[in-house]
């Protein structure tokens, strides 16, 4: 996809560009807010990555102006300001997701994928009541999960976890994303509490079947799908 990176730290922008390009994306760079806003409005992008603190026009003002111009392109806000109210103000002006520096590159990649997937709901079948990955089927109405026609019993939280993973099938989903989306917490656990929930879920959906579906992506997170990325 086509990404606009608005970041005043040119070296950080350079590595972002390199990483995203190697992941198969095409990037444009803007080094200050004014240039960034101009490029964002005139160009066609799938997603914007905007740093918060920038010379000339700061990130929040850029997003506000961008949204005021009637643009709906998803925006990812990056910031060294990690406080809760900063996060809220970032989302309030029209940002779609907020990532606090330092972030893992895998986290950014996963969130960008989730953002663009969300922007095209019709294509991904989000409105369906049943989600299907290979022979794994989740029926939201009946609150029922089957794999190869066999019923799998899940706890309510496990159900929500699987539902989120299936909605983002074939994407990398990070632990922080799961903690935010499934448990609604924005904090940084010292131990990996999510890992335990994942391995329990994996035991239920993968253990009795030859084809593993729930994969751990080292240093990034998890992916639900037929073939692991690496």
């Amino acid at each position: 996809m086509k990404i606009l990176i608005v970041e005043d730290d040119t070296r950080a922008a350079h590595y972002l560009n390199k990483g995203l390009s190697e992941s198969g994306h095409q990037c444009d760079l803007a080094a200050d807010g004014e240039t960034g806003l101009h490029m964002a409005i005139t160009g066609q992008y799938d997603v914007l990555i905007v740093d918060r603190m920038m010379p000339k026009l700061d990130g929040l003002a850029l997003i506000a102006a961008f949204r005021a111009a009637g643009k709906t392109t998803p925006v990812m806000v990056l910031s060294a300001l990690g406080e809760v109210d900063d996060r809220i103000s970032g989302l309030r002006v029209g940002g779609d997701d907020y990532l606090v520096k330092p972030y893992a590159f895998g986290e950014l990649l996963a969130r960008l994928n989730a953002l663009t997937r969300r922007a095209q709901p019709a294509a991904s079948g989000l409105e369906n009541d049943t989600l299907t990955v290979a022979d794994l089927v989740l029926d939201r109405n009946k609150h029922r999960v089957t794999r190869a026609e066999q019923r799998i019993l899940l706890q309510p939280r496990e159900f929500r976890l699987l539902e989120y993973l299936m909605r983002h099938a074939d994407q990398v989903v990070t632990r922080t994303m799961l903690l935010e989306q499934v448990w609604d917490y924005h904090f940084d656990p010292q131990t990996n509490v999510i890992e335990v929930h994942i391995s329990r879920l994996r035991r239920k959906i993968d253990r009795d079947f030859s084809l593993p579906l729930l994969h751990t992506i080292r240093g990034a997170g998890y992916r639900l799908g037929i073939v692991p990325e690496d």
């Binding site: 990483g19 060294a80 330092p102 240093g219």
Partner: peptide, 20 residues
């Protein structure tokens, strides 16, 4: 916070991109 975290973050991104 901004000045220290930014170079550290760059370092990490560089390593992660290299790993790709």
């Amino acid at each position: 916070a901004h000045d220290l975290r930014s170079p550290l973050n760059r370092l990490r991104t560089r390593l992660e991109v290299a790993l790709l």
